[in-house]
Simulated assay, not measured.
Amino acid sequence: MRILLPNSDGHLSNYEVTGTPIAKASLAHDSARRVYSAAHVVCDPFAEAGSSGTGAIDWNKTMGFRAHLVDLGLGIAEAMDTAQRGMGLNWFGALELIRQTKATFPNALVANGCGTDHLDPAEATSLDDVRRAYLEQVEAIQDVGGRIILMASRALAKVAKTPDDYIKIYNDVLAACDQPVILHWLGEMFDPALAGYWGADSFEGTLPTVISVIRDNETKIDGIKISLLDAQKEIVMRRQLPGSVRMYTGDDFNYPELIAGDEQGFSHALLGIFDPIAAHAATAISKLNSGDKDGFHAVLDPTVPLARHIFQAPTQHYKTGVVFLAWLNGHQDHFTMLAGAQALRSLPHFVECFKLADACGALSRPELAVERMELLLKLYGVR
């Protein structure tokens, strides 16, 4: 099957679609690795967003994608940055998303993003403002029976002056949580407003603060996800965690080696890239569970070039590539996003994304993908 694709200068050449879609396998409930896919939302292109932030979501298609993840045995990291949290999805929309997922999949493994995004950082003047904002979201999520991923706070990054300020806030918020939570350390490459989070400018200066929070609240913490795109930093931190606390990799560049682990341990997974390559994740980790480490790498390693492309700088625009692939693979009928985020990557980016997805078997329906890629090219004036 061939398609005419442009290069960065617009010159067209034949591209042969040769990839074999990954054969699906469902991850067992007793998997040695706990695996969450941070899931995207499907925009309703006919709806106005409205002041509530809930009106522009196609709930049927959004829940349909989550059914796809559940069928593969993956957990859902709900209402996170992959769902355009704070970048098109506000807190009110996020809470409705959390409610809908809980109602639709009451027995699924789901953890939900909890932050302070209803508090405008410009209006935050004190730690008390941040504390109240966190506790409001904690209460709302726990009221619907949801488990929590405690997200980093732009407002806290603004008002905190010292590492002790972070420690105070996290101690207070964790005390209010009724189930162990996943802490979420998002690097500034994902959100520039989080630069200097935890009260230091370097990883080495930050690590003691984070470890202190974890050790002081060990029974309240299931694990920590770090998204720093640096495998060595994750490994250094992983080796300092208490035995009861999981490391969840959020490294969309180096996830195979971190999940596989070494003689001193391994990482679980909470990844945005496990949205478009969910079938690869379930298949690869099933192989790892059976002791087939080579088979694990044979499935997952070829997806890394695609992941690095989708998450290339500016990294916060990775959601566009995630939704693009969901459209190519038939999980939704259009390629529009909340806040018009489909426009945040260039046509050459989409072309390369198509090629890399084909190369690793991430085009689950190649004929449909070709048909839709041709539609996109026409939209951009490519004949």
Rank of each mutant, 00 (worst) to 15 (best):
M1F: 09
L4I: 02
N7I: 06
N7L: 04
S8D: 14
S8I: 12
S8P: 00
S13R: 13
Y15W: 03
E16N: 08
E16L: 10
T20G: 01
P21H: 01
K24G: 03
K24Q: 13
A25D: 02
A28V: 04
A32W: 03
A32M: 11
A32H: 12
R34Y: 00
V41R: 04
V42S: 03
F46P: 01
F46K: 14
I57G: 07
W59M: 10
W59L: 07
W59H: 11
G64K: 13
L72C: 11
G75E: 02
A77Y: 14
A83D: 10
Q84R: 14
M87F: 15
N90K: 08
A94K: 06
L95S: 04
E96S: 05
E96A: 06
P106A: 13
N107W: 05
N107R: 11
L109R: 13
A111T: 12
A111Y: 14
N112F: 09
E123P: 02
T125W: 05
S126K: 01
L135F: 03
L135C: 08
E136F: 06
E139I: 00
I141P: 00
Q142T: 01
G145N: 05
G145M: 01
R147D: 09
A152F: 00
L156W: 04
L156T: 04
K158A: 10
A160Y: 07
P163L: 09
C177W: 12
Q179N: 13
L183I: 05
L186Q: 05
F190D: 02
D191F: 02
L194A: 06
A195K: 15
Y197L: 12
Y197D: 08
Y197R: 12
S202M: 09
T209Y: 11
S212C: 08
I214T: 04
D216G: 00
N217D: 05
T219E: 14
I221P: 02
D222T: 09
G223I: 02
S227F: 02
D230P: 06
R239Y: 06
P242E: 13
G243M: 08
G243V: 07
S244D: 05
R246W: 02
Y248K: 01
E257I: 06
D262K: 11
F266I: 01
D275V: 04
P276E: 12
A279Y: 07
A282P: 08
A284N: 10
N289K: 11
G291A: 09
K293P: 00
D294C: 03
F296W: 11
A298W: 05
V299I: 15
L300V: 01
P302R: 08
P305W: 10
L306R: 07
H317F: 14
H317G: 08
K319H: 09
T320R: 06
V323P: 00
V323M: 12
V323S: 15
F324C: 10
W327G: 00
L328P: 03
L328R: 08
N329Y: 03
G330F: 04
D333V: 02
H334E: 04
T336M: 10
G340Y: 15
L347W: 09
L347K: 08
C353A: 15
F354G: 06
L356H: 01
A357F: 05
D358T: 03
A359R: 13
C360P: 00
S364M: 12
R365I: 10
L368G: 04
L368D: 12
A369F: 12
R372T: 11
M373L: 10
E374T: 14
E374K: 14
L376A: 11
L376G: 10
K378D: 12
Y380I: 03
